[in-house]
Nucleic acid binder design. Structure first.
Lengths: 218, 218
DNA sequence: ACTATTGGAGAGCTATACTATCCATGTCAA
DNA sequence: TTGACATGGATAGTATAGCTCTCCAATAGT
């Protein structure tokens, strides 16, 4: 297919496809002549993945490019992707008082030790957790009461996540599942958590007359 | 205190404080003369909150302004904040095929009915969950296996979240806890989940020689 | 042969979150 | 009291991200 059909199938404007090609988010089509290229269904799939990582996962273009590069490697290492490539998807801008941050790091190390978690020496994830704990401190809120419960929940979820990854037959599929599961999983979990909070809140603070159980897309 | 001291205490540059004042993220200081104002500790706290919502929560300025407006209301309704104001913090850009989205909405309604969740008629949260489910579909992945487990986790987390909110003594404190807990909680949960995934992955795919249990901030 | 489309390259656009510059007015140490 | 420096307020400029537009010669399809 040519670019117009690709655009139509993936629901992405032609100029945007050209932009993604320039940015290396989409491999070039097979050139049949100096200014004609052919695209196939893998391009459609790749475009859909890019849009989903952008719109739902809110990842920056540069991060998506790095992820896709990992995904395209001949024999990808699933553990390496989960441990190294995906940390980039949870990054927070640092904004904390250094002293608060150091204390938070110690709290994180304690947590990891207590749980016996086996993590790579890479500080990416630890950094992210410490930043959030520090953020709770900065606004004068104690995260301590939540930390253990969240870690419990994270452990249980991670078991299912890895099961989800393992379910894919080949290595390529596993990496794909890891990326999709990690990025979309965050959004899914966040949205479901908000829903469950609303329900808990309704139970706790009383049910209002605008409460119901189902509604359509509009 | 004057603006220079406020800037120093909160770690925010003076021009940025002036910008936040213009944008309504920070209430004006008490004017002692046409071009002199006095600020207090509440301004420091508010600035820190803004930075944390920006840097860790990644919320846009406009969303932060709306949240803070709710927070400043004389007698804020905690349930109303949880149900109406916070949905804005989980929004996803829509990018899905309408047919896929309609099916996803049905799946969401089934989930809500099965769980007996009591939700407001407001479609915000449902919309978000449906968008993510649709996104899984778009990339050719079946979210079904994860949905129930995630909903379980969300329920358990929400109980602790509401406990966290209820722990605050006054209504103002509850709303503050709800906002901080909802926004930072997402980031904390995401970061812990990635950590737990790395651990599960290490268990599943074998431990590497670069694995250890603790590391410092650098 | 002729009209529309293509790949490729560059410039332009929009939104967000600042950052810099002015200036008339104030503060405060000497 | 005087003079360097800070302040509030307004306006304009900057950086980055993610597109979108315009142009061109070469080609596809009829």
């Amino acid at each position: 297919m040519r670019i117009a059909e690709l655009s139509q199938k993936a629901g992405v404007p032609v100029p945007t496809i050209k932009y993604y090609l320039r940015e290396g988010l989409l491999p070039a089509g097979e050139l049949t002549s100096p200014n004609q290229a052919r695209y196939d269904d893998r391009h459609v799939q790749r475009l859909r993945l890019v849009r989903v990582l952008l719109d739902v996962g809110r990842l920056p273009i540069a991060t998506i490019r790095d992820l896709l590069t990992k995904l395209d490697e001949p024999d990808p290492d699933v553990h390496e992707v989960l441990g190294r490539a995906l940390p980039a998807t949870t990054g927070v801008r640092e904004s904390s008082d250094p002293a608060v941050l150091v204390a938070a790091h110690e709290r994180v190390n304690t947590l990891i030790a207590q749980r016996g978690w086996l993590l790579s020496g890479d500080a990416g994830t630890r950094q992210a957790v410490a930043e959030v704990i520090a953020a709770f401190q900065q606004v004068g809120t104690d995260a301590e009461g939540l930390l253990e419960h969240y870690a419990d929940a994270a452990e249980r979820i991670a078991v299912h996540d890895l099961g989800f990854v393992a379910r894919a037959s080949d290595n390529e599929g596993k990496v794909h599942a890891a990326v999709v599961g990690a990025v979309l999983g965050n959004s899914l979990l966040a949205a479901l958590r908000r829903m469950a909070q609303e329900h808990e809140s309704a139970k706790m603070f009383g049910i209002r007359d605008d409460t119901c159980q189902a509604a359509g897309p509009d």
